[in-house]
Amino acid sequence: MTDTRITRDEVARVARLARLALSDDELNALRDDLDAILGYVAKLSELDVSEVEPTTHAIPLEMPTRRDEVVQTLSRDEVLSNAPSAEDGMFKVPTILEGGN
């Protein structure tokens, strides 16, 4: 990860993965920014972490569990109240072509 500079194509690939439409100017600027940031974080390669466990949670925690009980907190109107488009009690979205995902 040390010397690899991120290419414009790679930036475009990541933007597609992140579902971000970017202008050419944005793509170029992001290439430069990411290049600089990745150059900086390459610092981590100095560390030998082969024997180190990753930290996912800062504090040692265990998962609390919840009883299997239904508690309703929102009405359908509340759920749909911020929808850009709704119809028949459902969120309306652009046509989904079968097989996406």
């Binding site: 239904v70 508690v71 309703q72 749909l80």
Partner: peptide, 20 residues
């Protein structure tokens, strides 16, 4: 109830009535 929410997991309800 659902896996991570307290909403009902029952099948067949009116759309979006079991959503929080």
């Amino acid at each position: 109830s659902k896996l991570f929410s307290r909403e009902s997991a029952q099948y067949g309800a009116e759309p979006n009535t079991q959503v929080n």
